[in-house]
């Protein structure tokens, strides 16, 4: 393998990790919400809210971390709207989630209009890890170029995935989370407050969607434009199905998607691909991530439906204590 090919591959992997990180946050957030038995299709709207709030607060305070907090809070509050309809009012979760997506889009379009022209927002920092180069063999060749200097959100993502996996599968709270999504009546009978926990995890999912948005507008593409998520919130919902509700597979899907999303840009540097540098034909390449989502669902949906695996059994079903019927 010659040097250019190697650099090219590194570019793709590196860009994939960076572009996939916001998506990872959103996917993990939705995964947690769904594990609790609530389907929240409003991820796109919450991400936009997180992106705008993060951008605006970072811009006005000069502190990107305050921006992240604001973004998470804004999206979290929106998610509670969905919680109200889905959990307390026992409404149709599909319709409520759709409404949330619309509200988020509309709200950010109006409130964000004055931020569109701003370019110099305080961003989340990159982290230098020069010591990675000192590791023999793979240090200077792989670890250093890939991870030696990346944005902090990337490392947050690396931390989040094992943490969430451990939380779900190895802790008492995670056990409760699994129980309320699988069989809320059993959890209720065991003395677990299903309603309170479902609100909590809807909120957590919302905050992670907010983090996804904020990391988009403060790190990956540091600016604000209307609809800047370009469907990533919806892709996150799809990736949760692809992931079979497992955080590790969610990470895999997010990073693959990230790489595919960047592909048209990366391929422009490859001279022997005639059409890659042609922006018109490049539109075909831009379709790949969306088509990838569909293809991923084609393979995972049937599997999931056949084995009845993965999907929390009570997903999308409001819990009513003592509902009668067979």
């Amino acid at each position: 393998m010659d040097g250019t090919t190697l650099i090219f591959i590194f570019n793709i992997v590196s860009a994939g990790l960076r572009t996939g990180t916001p998506l990872l946050f959103a996917t993990i957030g939705e995964l947690i919400t769904e594990r609790a038995g609530v389907l929240n299709l409003g991820v796109e709207g919450m991400m936009l809210a997180g992106a705008l709030a993060g951008f605006a607060v970072s811009f006005s305070t000069g502190n990107p971390w305050l921006g992240v907090a604001a973004g998470m809070l804004a999206a979290g509050v929106l998610s509670l709207l969905h919680g109200l309809v889905a959990i307390s009012l026992r409404g149709d979760q599909v319709v409520s989630g759709l409404a949330l997506a619309f509200v988020g889009r509309g709200l950010t379009a109006v409130l964000g209009a004055r931020y569109v022209q701003i370019r110099d927002v305080p961003r989340l920092p990159n982290i230098e890890m020069p010591f990675l180069n000192d590791i023999p063999l793979i240090g200077p060749t792989i670890l250093g170029p890939l991870f030696g200097r990346q944005n902090i959100v990337l490392y947050l993502g690396f931390l989040l995935v094992p943490l969430v996996w451990f939380f779900i599968n190895r802790t008492r709270a995670g056990l409760n989370l699994r129980a309320i999504g699988e069989y809320p009546a059993a959890a209720d009978a065991a003395g677990i407050n299903v309603v309170r926990l479902r609100y909590f995890y809807v909120f957590v999912g919302g905050m992670l969607a907010g983090l996804a948005g904020a990391s988009l507008s403060l790190a990956v593409t540091p600016l604000w434009i209307e609809d800047m998520t370009a469907g990533q919130g919806w892709i996150a919902v799809g990736l949760v199905i692809f992931a079979g509700w497992d955080p590790w597979r969610a990470a895999l899907g997010s990073y693959i998607f990230g790489a595919l999303r960047r592909l048209p840009l990366d391929l422009q540097s490859v001279s022997w691909l005639p059409f890659a540098s042609n922006p018109i034909l490049g539109t075909w390449l831009s379709m790949i991530p969306y088509l990838f989502t569909i293809v991923a669902l084609m393979f995972s949906s049937r599997e999931a439906a056949r084995k009845r695996l993965g999907a929390p059994a009570a997903l999308g079903v409001p819990y009513v204590r003592g509902e009668r019927g067979l």
Binding site: T171, E182, A185
Partner: peptide, 26 residues
């Protein structure tokens, strides 16, 4: 009558579900 057991969890997990006298990490 309809058992209050979570089908995807193990016997042990079902027994400790809702108990708070066990550690946070299982």
């Amino acid at each position: 009558q309809h058992f209050m057991l979570v089908p995807t969890l193990t016997v042990a997990e079902n027994l400790i579900l809702g108990q708070d006298d066990i550690g946070f990490i299982l």
